[in-house]
Design a protein around this nucleic acid. Structure first.
Lengths: 221, 221
DNA sequence: TAGATTGTTAATCGATTAACAATC
DNA sequence: TAGATTGTTAATCGATTAACAATC
């Protein structure tokens, strides 16, 4: 019987709160706060303290009963859990407007995801430098991924090319794909995909706006 | 007693699936499919048919028992529900790399969100045209929002400016904000905010990648 | 000690899934 | 008719919240 790997059988909802916890804790650290209670931290994130403690409980033991959390311990613990204790080398595939914008996004580096390669098929873009990284030909992609041991790729190619590029990335050893192409990717087991659908986001917002505006009409009536 | 407005008391999870339904249906429409069953549509989206019917049930009556859905009826019905039956004029505030990338993103128009204004404080950017729209000075923002009756704004300014810009947008009549700044916005009741946190996305992915890699190590052991 | 805090389990709440009558 | 389908309610499942013993 295989022993269950600690801290990997965690609900998605919890996983998505971990970066928020980390971000807030880093902010506290920056202003010199040393201790923080679950109540304080939860309040600043507009969630319940019991939810925060329940989330932490998946990973066990960040403090002891009676004692608040120590910011200086919690920050590295969360970084370890999220997997960014060491910098995570990343590539961007597709150097169109969005790809270039992400390559320019300094926060990626700061958050622990240094960009080690930017690739595109368009020969006009080749050699153009973004924050010290030249845009490279797709031919060089697999070699660089292997050389730099890249496990995460940001995909900003047109939907029509997304699957083909994905297959190449997976074959080269990438196991996490941050997909901005508006299409569903087929990947084998052992590869994680996160779809970032901008159209879904703005449409969900539109739905709420429509309801708000209808509400105002109703108030006037 | 106020009558409950039909189709606005809907779980977020359902709201986020509406754009996916619409997208898939438009694809079917494009290849000439006229009818589709809940089973077929759900299967193509990798969800359960009962969930799809349950979602639709919030809005009531897209078909009748025994008869499959008619694509030509469902598409406009969903557009109406999402609030994009008519084009929804939009502004982009912040014309840095990300703002420019979004302004260039043709899909925004196609999906029903034509960009009617792009604004920035940087005088060097003023006048630069993106898909026919000049980057304008922030001074012109409120007037244009009122003139074009803009209700949705895409916010791509630095976190340090996000709240101040938000206050101005809300004062000018915007009720929906698509926020790319990594900061929480305070808005009054009757204003919807959707936060698009790229850092959260890539960290959630990182967590899963870490677990995948640990799994591989365990297999080797 | 008294008040506050965590870790942990139980209760509650909401979303997903199943079931099925009515209909074609 | 028989098989398939929707609309709708009930059952199940999972996530959030509350409760509280142990601890400081």
């Amino acid at each position: 019987m295989r022993k269950k790997r600690k801290g990997c059988d965690v609900p998605d909802a919890t996983i998505h709160r971990l970066p928020l916890y980390l971000e807030k804790l880093k902010l506290l650290q920056a202003i010199g706060v040393e201790d923080v209670s679950s109540r304080q931290l939860a309040e600043s994130l507009d969630i319940k303290a019991s939810q925060l403690r329940h989330d932490f409980h998946y990973f066990g033991g960040f403090s002891r009963p009676g004692r608040p959390y120590q910011v200086a311990k919690l920050v590295p613990a969360l970084e370890q859990i999220i997997g960014i204790a060491e910098p995570v080398p990343t590539v961007i595939v597709g150097a169109g407007h969005l790809g270039q914008a992400l390559a320019n996004y300094q926060n990626l580096d700061v958050q622990g995801f240094p960009v080690r390669g930017i690739f595109d098929v368009n020969p006009k873009l080749l050699g153009l430098e973004i924050r010290g990284q030249p845009i490279r030909d797709m031919d060089e992609m697999e070699a660089l991924i292997r050389k730099e041991n890249v496990k995460i790729a940001i995909l900003t190619v047109p939907a029509s090319h997304a699957q083909a590029v994905t297959d190449r990335l997976v074959a080269a050893g990438v196991v996490g794909i941050f997909n901005f192409a508006p299409t569903d990717l087929k990947v084998p087991d052992g590869v994680a995909v996160r779809n970032e659908r901008l159209a879904v986001g703005i449409m969900a917002l539109s739905f709420k706006v429509k309801c708000i505006l209808q509400g105002e009409d109703a108030d006037l009536a």
